[in-house]
Design a protein around this nucleic acid. Structure first.
Length: 458
RNA sequence: GUGACUGUAGCUCAGUUGGUUAGAGCAUCAGAUUGUGGUUCUGAGGGUCGUGGGUUCGAGCCCCAUCAGUCACCCCA
């Protein structure tokens, strides 16, 4: 029989990996909770029409579609054939597929809010930690199934939300030990003002996509790309002046004011950035927040402030989180007028960064704290009784499954990274005590059974 | 969706211009060691060389196809 394999771009997660990932998730979750966010889960799959058209043309192609069941029903073969023809012609047909795996957590959340907005207390703050799927071709740091963890606030346009998101990023990365992360911030309003300045508001997306690549491909290639997209030399000149803005946050905003003079949107964007920077400098001065005018972000529902968190430059993995403000996400589902903002952490990438920088604490992989040696029938009865007392007190422990040579039992403890072993043999049984050994330093002591149950296993 | 590269033991990889019975390290198992592990030593098991076809007296090596993986582009976490 051929060896089974995994679907492309998916992974199994062994015990050690799950422990490490839970370590990350617990930190993120507890910070979300600290800021008053509530948990939400949505199904793995959504109706295809809920997702289509929400992520742009490229995004649509990357949605994992689920084939309908019952296509082989003889009674429906003719219809199935016709529907399939229309799929081949590039159209989606409900007859072939009407469900898809979720592509992110934001759109399903918007769908949830659109359905439940009468019952929700606004502003509604939710966090969500679930896998999402993309039919992308996998490569380094990109998978077809991966976890996202999002926190969003809807029903509030207050800038307090953006400020809190910056604090959340800062606290999470600090607790994880990822010093040297960078948090970039820009505003879609500024990009919109730039497009307005060029007299070509419709080109906002093209312009955004091109300038987003600046640090990757350089100014010259960005110009070429813009020219390919049909922008005039004059327009490109304005864009390169925009892109050449440098300096501290305040210096950049100052130059930007000159460039976008006369644009209401531009002024609004600049004022917001300035306000947020000023408040952050009072509340969380260590937050590594930087204005980055080249930041654009692909998702087209963002309308205000946008964020992107980058891994330390030494790890070539790029973005480990992002987010922003959207004025009208639920409007896509017929419920207009609910503004919101949200952020997302890319857990799998954060995992890779932590692994590369060796940031997981060693204790993450201590599962069982103590192993009782099994040295015979009566001995193990006593060991079992002691073990249950320890479990009562919350100590994670196990009894070796059968009487075996010391060698074997020691090696099991070692392999499982169990710090303590407890020996109750014939001698100990007679004296109603045990030997407790710390394998990390080799120290061994003799304890009575009652002393054992009070021992602090650290 | 486009392009490049790689598939040899559980893992990481050697394997000469095509030449007999395909190797090493790590890991596993057993023993040295019947109540004290990590080190060391000895031994053992484990491979249809991704799969299918072709060239050849002869293929792990060359050719074609196919599958899988990796990386890059597009896009994105």
């Amino acid at each position: 029989m051929a060896k089974p394999t995994l679907p492309q771009g998916t992974r199994d997660f062994g015990p050690e990996t799950v422990r490490k990932r839970n370590y990350i998730l617990n930190i993120i979750r507890s910070v979300f909770e600290l800021y008053g966010f509530q948990p939400l889960e949505t199904p793995a799959m959504e109706n295809l029409e809920t997702l289509m058209g929400k992520y742009g043309e490229e995004g649509d192609k990357l949605i994992f579609k689920i084939l309908n069941n019952g296509l082989d029903n003889p009674a429906k073969q003719q219809q199935a054939r016709e529907d399939f023809e229309s799929v081949l012609a590039g159209k989606n047909t409900r007859g072939i597929t009407e469900r898809a795996l979720k592509y992110d957590l934001t759109i399903p959340f918007a769908r949830y809010v659109a359905i439940n907005h009468q019952q929700l207390a606004f502003p509604f703050k939710r966090y969500q930690i679930q896998p999402v799927w993309r039919a992308d071709r996998p490569q380094k740091g990109r998978y077809r199934e991966f976890y996202q963890c999002d926190a969003d606030v809807v029903g509030s346009g207050a800038y307090l939300n953006e400020i809190e998101f910056i604090c959340i990023y800062h606290q999470v990365f600090t607790r994880l030990g990822i010093a040297g992360y960078a948090l970039k911030m820009n505003s879609r309003k500024i990009l919109a003002a730039l497009a307005e300045q060029l007299g070509d508001v419709g080109r906002l997306t093209d312009i955004s996509v091109a300038i987003d690549k600046l640090d990757k491909i350089g100014l010259e290639k960005v110009k070429v790309e813009l020219s390919d997209k049909g922008l005039t030399d004059n327009q490109i000149e304005t864009i390169s002046r925009y892109l050449s803005i440098e300096g501290t946050n305040e210096e950049q905003l100052f130059q930007l004011e000159a460039l976008l003079a006369g644009s209401g949107q531009g002024a609004e964007g600049i004022a917001t950035l300035r306000l947020i920077l000023q408040k952050i400098s009072l509340i969380e001065p260590d937050a590594a927040i930087q204005i980055d005018l080249t930041l654009a972000r692909g998702l087209n529902y963002y309308t205000g402030i946008i964020f992107e968190a980058k891994a330390p430059a030494s790890v070539k993995i790029g973005s480990i989180g992002g987010g922003g403000r959207y004025d009208d996400l639920t409007g896509l589902f017929g419920v207009p007028g609910i503004p919101g903002a949200g952020i997302s952490f890319g857990v799998d990438r954060i995992y890779d960064v932590m692994e590369e920088l060796n940031l997981f604490p060693g204790a993450v992989n201590i599962s069982t704290q103590a192993l009782f040696f099994n040295l015979g029938e009566e001995e193990s009865n006593a060991a079992f009784a002691c073990m249950q007392q320890l479990r009562e007190k919350g100590v994670r422990c196990e009894l070796f499954h059968e009487p075996q040579k010391f060698d074997k039992q020691f090696k099991y403890a070692e392999k499982k990274n169990i710090p303590y072993i407890i020996i109750i043999g014939k001698e100990e049984l007679d004296q109603r005590n045990c030997k407790l050994k710390d394998l990390r330093n080799g120290n061994q002591q003799t304890l009575s059974w009652s002393e054992l149950s009070g021992f602090d296993f650290v």
